[in-house]
Design a protein around this nucleic acid. Structure first.
Lengths: 152, 152
DNA sequence: CCCAATAGTTGGTTCTTACCAAGGATTTCC
DNA sequence: GGAAATCCTTGGTAAGAACCAACTATTGGG
Protein backbone atom coordinates (compact mmCIF):
# COMPACT_ATOMS: atom_id res chain seq x y z
CA UNK A 1 0.00 0.00 0.00
CA UNK A 2 1.67 2.96 1.46
CA UNK A 3 4.96 3.55 -0.20
CA UNK A 4 4.02 7.08 0.70
CA UNK A 5 6.27 8.34 3.48
CA UNK A 6 4.84 8.23 6.98
CA UNK A 7 6.70 11.04 8.58
CA UNK A 8 7.56 11.16 12.27
CA UNK A 9 5.34 13.53 14.30
CA UNK A 10 8.50 15.07 15.69
CA UNK A 11 9.32 16.40 12.25
CA UNK A 12 5.80 17.49 11.43
CA UNK A 13 5.97 19.70 14.50
CA UNK A 14 8.84 21.66 12.99
CA UNK A 15 7.69 24.71 11.07
CA UNK A 16 10.90 24.95 9.10
CA UNK A 17 10.50 21.36 8.04
CA UNK A 18 7.00 21.95 6.70
CA UNK A 19 8.10 25.14 5.00
CA UNK A 20 10.88 23.33 3.27
CA UNK A 21 8.71 20.43 2.18
CA UNK A 22 5.88 22.52 0.81
CA UNK A 23 8.31 25.00 -0.68
CA UNK A 24 10.24 22.34 -2.52
CA UNK A 25 7.04 20.81 -3.84
CA UNK A 26 5.91 24.21 -5.08
CA UNK A 27 9.20 25.03 -6.67
CA UNK A 28 9.27 21.72 -8.43
CA UNK A 29 5.78 22.11 -9.80
CA UNK A 30 6.46 25.62 -10.93
CA UNK A 31 9.59 24.49 -12.71
CA UNK A 32 7.69 21.71 -14.44
CA UNK A 33 5.06 24.09 -15.70
CA UNK A 34 7.51 26.71 -16.90
CA UNK A 35 9.34 24.04 -18.82
CA UNK A 36 6.23 23.83 -20.96
CA UNK A 37 6.85 27.45 -21.91
CA UNK A 38 10.46 26.82 -22.65
CA UNK A 39 11.77 28.83 -19.73
CA UNK A 40 13.02 28.25 -16.20
CA UNK A 41 12.46 29.86 -12.85
CA UNK A 42 15.26 32.35 -13.27
CA UNK A 43 13.97 33.34 -16.67
CA UNK A 44 10.60 34.10 -15.16
CA UNK A 45 12.24 36.14 -12.42
CA UNK A 46 14.10 38.19 -15.00
CA UNK A 47 10.95 38.82 -17.01
CA UNK A 48 9.18 39.91 -13.85
CA UNK A 49 12.01 42.24 -12.85
CA UNK A 50 12.09 43.83 -16.29
CA UNK A 51 8.37 44.35 -16.34
CA UNK A 52 8.16 45.67 -12.78
CA UNK A 53 11.22 47.89 -12.85
CA UNK A 54 11.74 48.58 -16.53
CA UNK A 55 14.79 47.98 -18.73
CA UNK A 56 18.08 47.27 -17.01
CA UNK A 57 21.60 46.11 -17.63
CA UNK A 58 22.49 42.54 -16.85
CA UNK A 59 24.52 43.74 -13.94
CA UNK A 60 21.52 45.49 -12.46
CA UNK A 61 19.39 42.42 -13.00
CA UNK A 62 21.92 40.26 -11.27
CA UNK A 63 22.17 42.55 -8.27
CA UNK A 64 18.43 42.90 -8.06
CA UNK A 65 17.66 39.21 -8.18
CA UNK A 66 20.74 37.93 -6.42
CA UNK A 67 22.07 36.03 -9.41
CA UNK A 68 25.73 35.84 -10.25
CA UNK A 69 26.43 37.78 -13.46
CA UNK A 70 27.97 34.74 -15.04
CA UNK A 71 24.84 32.74 -14.41
CA UNK A 72 22.78 35.45 -16.03
CA UNK A 73 24.46 34.69 -19.32
CA UNK A 74 22.62 31.47 -19.82
CA UNK A 75 19.36 33.10 -18.79
CA UNK A 76 19.86 35.60 -21.59
CA UNK A 77 20.85 32.79 -23.90
CA UNK A 78 17.38 31.41 -23.28
CA UNK A 79 15.36 34.61 -23.36
CA UNK A 80 16.96 36.36 -26.33
CA UNK A 81 16.54 33.58 -28.92
CA UNK A 82 12.95 33.10 -27.79
CA UNK A 83 12.35 36.80 -28.41
CA UNK A 84 11.10 37.33 -24.88
CA UNK A 85 13.52 40.16 -24.23
CA UNK A 86 15.18 42.71 -26.45
CA UNK A 87 18.85 43.20 -25.79
CA UNK A 88 20.86 45.99 -27.31
CA UNK A 89 24.03 47.76 -26.42
CA UNK A 90 23.52 50.81 -24.30
CA UNK A 91 24.38 53.72 -26.66
CA UNK A 92 25.78 55.71 -23.75
CA UNK A 93 28.02 52.95 -22.53
CA UNK A 94 28.65 50.25 -24.99
CA UNK A 95 29.98 47.89 -22.38
CA UNK A 96 26.52 47.27 -21.07
CA UNK A 97 23.44 45.87 -22.57
CA UNK A 98 20.05 47.42 -22.21
CA UNK A 99 17.65 44.57 -21.66
CA UNK A 100 13.89 45.09 -21.99
CA UNK A 101 10.86 42.83 -22.04
CA UNK A 102 9.30 42.32 -25.43
CA UNK A 103 5.55 42.03 -25.98
CA UNK A 104 6.07 38.30 -26.33
CA UNK A 105 7.92 38.37 -23.02
CA UNK A 106 5.03 40.10 -21.34
CA UNK A 107 2.65 37.51 -22.70
CA UNK A 108 4.87 34.69 -21.46
CA UNK A 109 5.15 36.33 -18.07
CA UNK A 110 1.36 36.59 -17.88
CA UNK A 111 1.10 32.93 -18.71
CA UNK A 112 3.73 32.10 -16.11
CA UNK A 113 1.86 34.05 -13.48
CA UNK A 114 -1.28 32.16 -14.34
CA UNK A 115 0.66 28.92 -13.93
CA UNK A 116 1.80 30.18 -10.55
CA UNK A 117 -1.82 30.68 -9.58
CA UNK A 118 -2.63 27.12 -10.57
CA UNK A 119 0.36 25.81 -8.68
CA UNK A 120 -0.89 27.64 -5.61
CA UNK A 121 -4.36 26.17 -6.00
CA UNK A 122 -2.83 22.74 -6.35
CA UNK A 123 -0.33 23.13 -3.56
CA UNK A 124 -2.83 24.61 -1.15
CA UNK A 125 -5.78 22.49 -2.23
CA UNK A 126 -6.52 21.70 1.40
CA UNK A 127 -6.93 25.37 2.29
CA UNK A 128 -9.89 27.60 1.56
CA UNK A 129 -9.64 31.10 0.15
CA UNK A 130 -9.28 32.85 3.49
CA UNK A 131 -6.66 30.44 4.67
CA UNK A 132 -4.62 30.87 1.52
CA UNK A 133 -4.76 34.61 1.89
CA UNK A 134 -3.71 34.35 5.51
CA UNK A 135 -0.85 32.04 4.65
CA UNK A 136 0.36 34.36 1.94
CA UNK A 137 0.22 37.38 4.22
CA UNK A 138 2.14 35.60 6.95
CA UNK A 139 4.79 34.38 4.55
CA UNK A 140 5.18 37.81 3.11
CA UNK A 141 5.58 39.31 6.54
CA UNK A 142 8.09 36.68 7.59
CA UNK A 143 10.05 37.07 4.39
CA UNK A 144 10.14 40.84 4.71
CA UNK A 145 11.63 40.50 8.17
CA UNK A 146 14.05 37.93 6.87
CA UNK A 147 15.34 39.62 3.77
CA UNK A 148 17.78 42.13 5.28
CA UNK A 149 20.00 39.38 6.58
CA UNK A 150 18.81 36.72 4.17
CA UNK A 151 22.26 36.09 2.83
CA UNK A 152 24.03 35.69 6.14
CA UNK B 1 24.49 50.03 0.14
CA UNK B 2 21.83 47.64 -0.84
CA UNK B 3 23.43 44.69 -2.48
CA UNK B 4 20.39 43.04 -0.98
CA UNK B 5 18.05 41.85 -3.70
CA UNK B 6 15.09 44.08 -4.47
CA UNK B 7 12.64 41.53 -5.69
CA UNK B 8 9.93 42.29 -8.21
CA UNK B 9 6.44 42.67 -6.69
CA UNK B 10 5.19 40.21 -9.27
CA UNK B 11 7.24 37.50 -7.61
CA UNK B 12 6.39 38.53 -4.08
CA UNK B 13 2.75 37.99 -4.99
CA UNK B 14 3.40 34.31 -5.67
CA UNK B 15 2.78 32.13 -2.65
CA UNK B 16 4.90 29.31 -3.99
CA UNK B 17 7.77 31.72 -4.44
CA UNK B 18 7.62 32.88 -0.84
CA UNK B 19 7.26 29.33 0.39
CA UNK B 20 10.34 28.32 -1.51
CA UNK B 21 12.39 31.28 -0.33
CA UNK B 22 11.52 30.96 3.32
CA UNK B 23 11.75 27.19 3.16
CA UNK B 24 15.22 27.26 1.67
CA UNK B 25 16.37 29.77 4.26
CA UNK B 26 15.02 27.57 7.03
CA UNK B 27 16.53 24.43 5.65
CA UNK B 28 19.86 26.11 5.30
CA UNK B 29 19.86 27.42 8.83
CA UNK B 30 18.79 24.10 10.20
CA UNK B 31 21.56 22.37 8.32
CA UNK B 32 24.10 24.84 9.65
CA UNK B 33 23.03 24.24 13.22
CA UNK B 34 22.96 20.48 12.93
CA UNK B 35 26.45 20.56 11.53
CA UNK B 36 27.51 21.75 14.97
CA UNK B 37 26.21 18.46 16.32
CA UNK B 38 27.99 16.47 13.68
CA UNK B 39 24.86 15.38 11.89
CA UNK B 40 22.79 16.37 8.87
CA UNK B 41 19.12 16.81 8.15
CA UNK B 42 18.60 13.22 7.13
CA UNK B 43 20.34 12.01 10.26
CA UNK B 44 17.93 14.03 12.34
CA UNK B 45 14.99 12.64 10.42
CA UNK B 46 16.19 9.11 11.07
CA UNK B 47 16.62 9.77 14.78
CA UNK B 48 13.12 11.23 14.90
CA UNK B 49 11.65 8.27 13.06
CA UNK B 50 13.34 5.80 15.37
CA UNK B 51 12.19 7.61 18.46
CA UNK B 52 8.64 8.13 17.25
CA UNK B 53 8.07 4.70 15.75
CA UNK B 54 10.60 2.53 17.50
CA UNK B 55 13.38 0.35 16.08
CA UNK B 56 13.24 -0.44 12.40
CA UNK B 57 15.22 -1.93 9.57
CA UNK B 58 16.95 0.37 7.16
CA UNK B 59 14.45 -0.59 4.54
CA UNK B 60 11.59 0.49 6.74
CA UNK B 61 13.34 3.73 7.51
CA UNK B 62 13.90 4.41 3.87
CA UNK B 63 10.28 3.73 2.96
CA UNK B 64 9.05 5.79 5.85
CA UNK B 65 11.15 8.84 5.14
CA UNK B 66 11.28 8.56 1.39
CA UNK B 67 15.02 8.02 1.21
CA UNK B 68 16.62 5.66 -1.23
CA UNK B 69 18.09 2.68 0.62
CA UNK B 70 21.49 3.33 -0.89
CA UNK B 71 21.46 6.86 0.45
CA UNK B 72 20.62 5.54 3.89
CA UNK B 73 23.99 3.87 4.04
CA UNK B 74 25.87 7.06 4.54
CA UNK B 75 23.35 8.20 7.11
CA UNK B 76 24.12 5.08 9.11
CA UNK B 77 27.81 5.64 8.51
CA UNK B 78 27.35 8.90 10.35
CA UNK B 79 25.03 7.80 13.13
CA UNK B 80 26.64 4.50 14.08
CA UNK B 81 30.19 5.76 14.73
CA UNK B 82 28.76 8.64 16.76
CA UNK B 83 26.91 6.12 18.89
CA UNK B 84 23.58 7.82 18.20
CA UNK B 85 21.95 4.61 17.04
CA UNK B 86 22.54 0.98 17.85
CA UNK B 87 22.58 -1.27 14.86
CA UNK B 88 22.56 -5.01 15.14
CA UNK B 89 21.55 -7.81 12.87
CA UNK B 90 17.97 -8.84 13.33
CA UNK B 91 18.23 -12.29 14.98
CA UNK B 92 15.12 -13.43 13.16
CA UNK B 93 16.33 -12.35 9.75
CA UNK B 94 19.99 -11.73 9.55
CA UNK B 95 19.73 -9.90 6.26
CA UNK B 96 18.30 -6.90 7.99
CA UNK B 97 19.61 -4.66 10.63
CA UNK B 98 17.61 -3.67 13.64
CA UNK B 99 18.33 0.00 14.16
CA UNK B 100 17.40 1.71 17.42
CA UNK B 101 18.07 5.12 18.94
CA UNK B 102 20.61 5.12 21.71
CA UNK B 103 20.34 7.33 24.80
CA UNK B 104 22.95 9.57 23.19
CA UNK B 105 20.81 9.64 20.08
CA UNK B 106 17.80 10.75 22.07
CA UNK B 107 19.82 13.51 23.65
CA UNK B 108 21.07 14.65 20.27
CA UNK B 109 17.55 14.59 18.89
CA UNK B 110 16.37 16.72 21.81
CA UNK B 111 19.14 19.18 21.08
CA UNK B 112 18.26 19.17 17.39
CA UNK B 113 14.62 19.87 18.18
CA UNK B 114 15.67 22.78 20.36
CA UNK B 115 17.74 24.07 17.46
CA UNK B 116 14.66 23.74 15.28
CA UNK B 117 12.77 25.92 17.71
CA UNK B 118 15.45 28.56 17.56
CA UNK B 119 15.50 28.42 13.79
CA UNK B 120 11.77 28.98 13.80
CA UNK B 121 12.12 31.95 16.11
CA UNK B 122 14.80 33.36 13.86
CA UNK B 123 13.03 32.62 10.61
CA UNK B 124 9.70 33.95 11.83
CA UNK B 125 11.10 36.82 13.85
CA UNK B 126 8.62 39.18 12.22
CA UNK B 127 5.65 37.13 13.42
CA UNK B 128 4.17 37.04 16.89
CA UNK B 129 3.22 33.88 18.75
CA UNK B 130 -0.29 33.65 17.38
CA UNK B 131 0.86 34.25 13.85
CA UNK B 132 3.51 31.56 14.11
CA UNK B 133 0.95 29.11 15.40
CA UNK B 134 -1.42 30.01 12.59
CA UNK B 135 1.30 29.63 9.99
CA UNK B 136 2.28 26.26 11.35
CA UNK B 137 -1.31 25.04 11.38
CA UNK B 138 -1.88 26.17 7.81
CA UNK B 139 1.31 24.57 6.59
CA UNK B 140 0.45 21.36 8.31
CA UNK B 141 -2.97 21.32 6.77
CA UNK B 142 -1.60 22.09 3.33
CA UNK B 143 1.08 19.45 3.65
CA UNK B 144 -1.40 16.83 4.81
CA UNK B 145 -3.49 17.47 1.73
CA UNK B 146 -0.38 17.37 -0.39
CA UNK B 147 1.27 14.26 0.86
CA UNK B 148 -0.78 11.57 -0.87
CA UNK B 149 0.41 12.70 -4.28
CA UNK B 150 3.52 14.42 -3.05
CA UNK B 151 5.85 12.36 -5.17
CA UNK B 152 3.99 12.71 -8.45
C1' DC C 1 47.91 58.29 -23.54
C1' DC C 2 47.90 54.99 -19.88
C1' DC C 3 45.91 52.86 -15.96
C1' DA C 4 42.10 51.39 -13.26
C1' DA C 5 37.50 50.12 -13.16
C1' DT C 6 33.30 48.18 -15.27
C1' DA C 7 30.10 44.89 -18.24
C1' DG C 8 29.73 40.81 -19.99
C1' DT C 9 31.46 36.17 -21.15
C1' DT C 10 33.81 31.71 -20.75
C1' DG C 11 34.95 27.83 -18.37
C1' DG C 12 35.53 25.73 -14.49
C1' DT C 13 34.68 23.93 -9.43
C1' DT C 14 31.93 22.51 -5.60
C1' DC C 15 27.80 20.92 -3.23
C1' DT C 16 23.53 18.84 -2.85
C1' DT C 17 19.86 15.80 -4.07
C1' DA C 18 18.01 12.10 -6.25
C1' DC C 19 18.44 8.24 -8.80
C1' DC C 20 19.82 3.56 -10.70
C1' DA C 21 22.44 -0.94 -11.53
C1' DA C 22 24.88 -4.62 -9.83
C1' DG C 23 26.67 -7.69 -6.31
C1' DG C 24 27.10 -10.37 -1.71
C1' DA C 25 24.65 -12.29 2.00
C1' DT C 26 20.59 -14.30 3.67
C1' DT C 27 15.98 -15.98 3.67
C1' DT C 28 11.72 -18.00 1.73
C1' DC C 29 9.14 -20.55 -1.50
C1' DC C 30 8.49 -24.52 -4.26
C1' DG D 1 18.14 -28.27 -2.52
C1' DG D 2 17.67 -24.75 -5.90
C1' DA D 3 15.39 -20.54 -7.60
C1' DA D 4 13.61 -16.31 -6.44
C1' DA D 5 13.12 -12.65 -3.48
C1' DT D 6 14.87 -9.50 0.17
C1' DC D 7 18.34 -6.45 2.71
C1' DC D 8 22.15 -3.89 2.53
C1' DT D 9 26.18 -2.04 0.18
C1' DT D 10 29.08 -0.17 -3.50
C1' DG D 11 29.71 2.77 -7.10
C1' DG D 12 28.25 5.11 -10.14
C1' DT D 13 25.10 8.90 -12.97
C1' DA D 14 22.52 13.22 -13.76
C1' DA D 15 20.43 17.54 -12.67
C1' DG D 16 20.46 21.88 -10.23
C1' DA D 17 22.32 25.79 -8.01
C1' DA D 18 25.98 28.70 -6.31
C1' DC D 19 30.39 30.34 -6.79
C1' DC D 20 34.87 31.95 -8.66
C1' DA D 21 38.96 33.20 -11.70
C1' DA D 22 40.36 34.88 -15.81
C1' DC D 23 39.54 36.99 -20.30
C1' DT D 24 37.74 40.71 -23.84
C1' DA D 25 35.82 45.17 -24.71
C1' DT D 26 34.87 49.40 -23.32
C1' DT D 27 34.92 53.45 -20.43
C1' DG D 28 36.69 57.14 -17.41
C1' DG D 29 40.26 59.42 -14.56
C1' DG D 30 44.65 61.45 -14.19
Amino acid sequence: MSDVPQLPPSLLGITAFLLSKVGIAGRRRMGDRLRGHGIGLWDMAVLAALRDFGPASQRELGARLGIDPSDLVEVMDTLVPLGLVERERDPEDRRRYRVAVSPAGRATLEAALREAGEVRDDLLAALDEDERATLHALLRKAYAGLEPRARA
